[in-house]
């Protein structure tokens, strides 16, 4: 035990100043991510309470009903009443969990009344974004600095790279306080699009379309990653969403719009 604590101290002291000790899910900036966070905490607290009760009884028994303390074994080995009780109580607790979970799920699956449609296409190993109504379209991949640093034997200190592995060349820009419908598909294999603070993940499947919606309440930059194994560079296709106020978004769109006809002659 002693050796272990020394080991832990050594490890902690060698920890880089960039790192943090985040132990929980981040709170979200959209209704869906917040709902997921609230459910997560609710279920977590319930399991902690159950754990304390069950392990409490168990440890009481371990300390008091041991042979070395002269405990004599009792002879009971069944009780229908007790067993019915501990079948029914968990069932009731589960129903209590299922109700808010179902409500949240129904809310998450309702993509009606979206103002903007963003189509996200997964490629090996980058993302393509199409703003369906606004005629903006671009690819987004890992930025060059991270890409150089991540090569085997690059000798670059990744701690000095800005947002190592979580930075892209072209950010997705989305307006705040706007319901955005995100359509997901892929060109080659299955990918999954995930930005924890904005939304849970959903798979991007070649040949098929999935959808989810976001409504970002706070301007800022939010980062995420591909979360379905998609080949060798699966770990290197990040997502960066910049949420800006509506007017700024409109300006950004007009700067980035392009002519669809010109595209055809490419």
């Amino acid at each position: 035990m002693n050796r272990l604590s020394i080991l832990l101290i050594i490890m902690m002291s060698s920890v880089s100043s960039f790192a943090d000790w985040e132990v929980n899910m981040p709170r979200g900036v959209s209704p869906t991510a917040n709902a997921a966070y609230d459910l997560h905490m609710l279920i977590f607290y319930i399991t902690v309470v159950i754990g304390i009760i069950v392990f409490g009884v168990m440890f009481y028994s371990i300390f008091h009903h041991r042979k070395s303390k002269g405990a004599k074994p009792a002879s009971f080995h069944e009780s229908t009443t007790v067993e019915i009780i501990w079948t029914v109580i968990p069932f009731v607790i589960l129903v209590g969990m299922a109700v808010p979970a179902t409500k949240t799920l129904i809310m998450m699956e309702d993509t009606r009344d979206s103002e903007i449609t963003l189509k996200v296409t997964g490629y090996q190993w980058m993302w393509k974004y199409d703003y369906v109504e606004d005629n903006v379209s671009f690819f987004s991949k890992l930025d060059n600095k991270s890409n150089e640093a991540r090569q085997l034997g690059s000798k670059i200190d990744v701690n000095k790279v800005d947002n190592y592995l979580l930075n892209v060349d072209n950010e997705v820009v989305l307006p705040t306080d706007t319901k955005v419908r995100i359509l997901l598909t892929a060109s080659d294999v299955i990918h999954a699009w995930w930005v924890p603070e904005i939304t849970g993940k959903k798979d991007a499947i070649p040949g098929y379309i999935n959808e989810l919606w976001v409504d970002i309440k706070k301007p800022g930059v939010y980062r995420g990653q591909c979360t379905e194994l998609c080949g060798k560079d699966h770990g290197f296709m990040p997502i960066v969403v910049r949420a800006v106020p509506r007017q700024e978004y409109v300006k950004w769109v007009s700067l980035n719009q392009k002519n669809r006809v010109a595209d055809k002659s490419e």
């Binding site: 490629y123 359509l183 055809k264």
Partner: peptide, 21 residues
């Protein structure tokens, strides 16, 4: 109804809806 298109496996094709909505 919104119309969208995809080209699988980055095939050398242009493929787009004539009308998007």
């Amino acid at each position: 109804i919104k119309f969208i298109s995809n080209v699988a496996n980055s095939a050398p094709l242009y493929f787009e809806p004539a009308v998007t909505e």
